[in-house]
Design a protein around this nucleic acid. Structure first.
Length: 290
DNA sequence: TCCCAGGGATGAC
DNA sequence: GTCATCCATGGG
């Protein structure tokens, strides 16, 4: 499969660097916890990618987040909003610390924050994520950007994918997800307002609306609601979350993903999505043994 | 080689 | 409404 890795591309030189005071932030955990697929880690620990369709290099030095961009294009407010920097995480921590099963996740990943990414990118990314692994999703993300986007470092728009075709998407490696992504891109290119309206819709109805898009089932819809619309009661139940929840809260009984979601919302209420992110990352990284 | 991965669509019941 | 089966692909 031929695709240009970012390392082989001309090295990007950024002209300006913005510094953010971030006393309770963990960039590494935030970007490596499976919320976004478009950032590639560099040798010095920095990350190259795009934030709101703007190329950036991100780096953390102790209590400072450094955002390199071309010109003065990055708005202060946009970055704070993207990384949810103005949230007091102590409410999340109180959930994690009051439960011995979740404590290791706090210790390992304190400062992990939920990202508010572009809704379309969340839709596309998590359609690709179905029965897939993070490494492969990232590769597909890069190849979609390289082959279908005007700027190969930025993820293609819905319209750009809409004018593609199934064989091209299969060649990129989407497999059986190719027709799903294509059909959904075309629906969203046709009426983008149907997607953006979800922002003002409550969780339950928003989930139903999202599941009308091909390739979007219950779990993917929850991911889109959590990472694309910042609806924090969303509790995506993938294989890792399912294992964790069954082992620690359901005595290893087999329970439906729907029941797990209901249980989580009852227990952690409007912060269920945040708790999920910590426990998913901890389970997947084996910080918590399952 | 087999197993697994941030599951969804479909059809049977 | 729930449940089994099938679906591409590549990393481990």
């Amino acid at each position: 499969m031929e695709f240009m890795s970012t390392e082989l591309m001309a090295p990007k030189i950024f002209s300006s660097c913005h510094v953010f005071n971030t006393p309770d932030f963990n960039l590494l955990a935030t970007l490596e916890s499976g919320q976004v697929f478009g950032f590639t880690k560099e040798a010095d620990g920095g990350f190259l990618g795009a934030l709101n369709q703007v190329e950036v290099r991100l780096r953390q030095e102790e209590n400072h987040l450094l955002v390199e961009t071309e010109g003065e294009t990055v708005l202060e407010e946009a970055v704070r909003r993207y990384f949810d920097l103005d949230r007091d995480l102590n409410l999340v921590y109180s959930h994690l610390l009051s439960d011995p099963r979740l404590k290791p996740a706090h210790k390992a990943f304190k400062g992990l924050r939920l990202i508010r990414q572009n809704p379309w990118e969340a839709v596309a990314g998590f359609i690709v994520s179905a029965n897939n692994n993070v490494k492969r999703i990232q590769g597909i993300w890069q190849r979609l950007s390289n082959s279908l986007s005007e700027n190969p470092r930025i993820f293609p728009s819905a319209s750009a994918i809409a004018i593609s075709n199934e064989p091209a998407l299969r060649k990129i490696g989407l497999g059986y997800r190719a027709p799903y992504l294509l059909a959904t891109a075309r629906k969203i290119a046709d009426s983008p307002e149907r997607l953006t309206q979800i922002d003002q819709t409550d969780y339950e109805e928003a989930k139903e609306l999202l599941m009308k898009y091909p390739g979007v089932g219950s779990k993917v819809a929850d991911c889109i609601l959590l990472y694309g619309f910042h609806k924090l009661e969303a509790f995506p139940v993938d294989v890792w979350v399912s294992r964790f929840m069954r082992k620690f809260y359901f005595r290893n009984r087999k329970v439906s993903e729907k029941r797990i979601g209901l249980f989580a919302r009852k227990r952690w209420d409007s912060l269920a999505g945040y708790v999920q992110q910590y426990l998913f990352h901890a389970a997947r990284c084996q910080v918590i043994k399952l």
